[in-house]
Design a protein around this nucleic acid. Sequence first.
DNA 1: ACCTGAACACCGTTCAAGT
DNA 2: ACCTGAACACCGTTCAAGT
Lengths: 221, 221
Amino acid sequence: MTEARTDTREAILQSARTSVETHGYTALSFRDLAADVGVKSASVHYHFPTKPDLAEALVNRRCTEQEAFFEDLFARTQNYEELIRGYIAMFRSGFDCGNRMCVAGVMSAEIGGLPDPVRAAIRRFKDVNVAWIAKMLRIRHPRMADETLQQRAFAIYASLEGAQLIAHGLGGDAAAFDDVIAGYEASGLLSLTGSGGRADDAGAENRLHERKPAIRKRAQN
Amino acid sequence: MTEARTDTREAILQSARTSVETHGYTALSFRDLAADVGVKSASVHYHFPTKPDLAEALVNRRCTEQEAFFEDLFARTQNYEELIRGYIAMFRSGFDCGNRMCVAGVMSAEIGGLPDPVRAAIRRFKDVNVAWIAKMLRIRHPRMADETLQQRAFAIYASLEGAQLIAHGLGGDAAAFDDVIAGYEASGLLSLTGSGGRADDAGAENRLHERKPAIRKRAQN
DNA sequence: ACCTGAACACCGTTCAAGT
DNA sequence: ACCTGAACACCGTTCAAGT
């Protein structure tokens, strides 16, 4: 398909993504980016006229990837616990490769310096995630009111971004992330224990098909 | 007490705080900061030799303020619901004055470019918050195991930072923040509904002393 | 003790010029 | 279509010099 012609553009996007996930958007340098890709900084401006243009492309690309991730996940299983654990694992994966964070999360913190198109992309990323979380939750709560389900999905999205943000700020502390997730699970937020607060479902499928190993605790000291 | 002599240093800290809360740490400019305060940028370096030194001072000052906030809050009431709602209101308050965000949250996202002293300050801010949330939770759950209580407190802290981050990224969408909080509450995460998951307390004080008005819903469209 | 101007190597951005 | 060197006004930082 679209293979060779946009080599440089592709390399820029990949290098920029890693950099933003690791050091943030504002800290990203067009000159360093260009050096990493093997061109001059003016060439980066050829592909992305301004820095916000690059930011927008990064978030929009993440939206597409995220859709694909969800489709793959749902193709593998329709078991709620497996779905939600797979989703959580994606938020955790950045800690295994250099303490990276979701680009939409990073840019949310730096939103003050970003123009409308980037804000729209961040909103779209949120919408994509909430819609698919709701799709998961529907499996667990077949009769829950749609408004309640959407609200719960939004809450789960925000809580996972928060767990990632805090663990990222603690230097990529995956054990802290796991600890927060365990707290969410125990409270019922993730609808994993069958004790999910006001959830007005039938409570018919509280037994889990299989149990994953317990979430790892903090390193003993 | 310490009044007049450190005027400039005080003004720098205040201006920097607003700027970081609004635009992020990396976007903060020593020259703009100096202009706002009425000195030259070299003078800012006299008070804070490097930018990370300023960042560290900002977070450490927030820790002190946060301690004072909690002490005031506990001095006003020992009612759990009032305490937790007062705490949540603090996370929400930034949306009423220019979409500001917690400095520790902002810098968590930008942690990749920050040295150890700042990381330590961010960790301290987390510790302060979790300790005081645990103190609140102890009122609601008198017999909960301490480890479980700490985990729940950590989860609440991360979830509130997440709610703030996402609403910040949506352009200071206070209604979105309220929506997420309502989702947390309904799930039991905030221990406000008496249906808090595996919480192994006696369930003796589930009745609330008073009910606050319902959390506002999203603007109708 | 506190501030400053000038210099340094950086930054995003622009543009005329190359192939 | 894609890249470049040079220039512009910025940036954090340093330092000798002022009061």
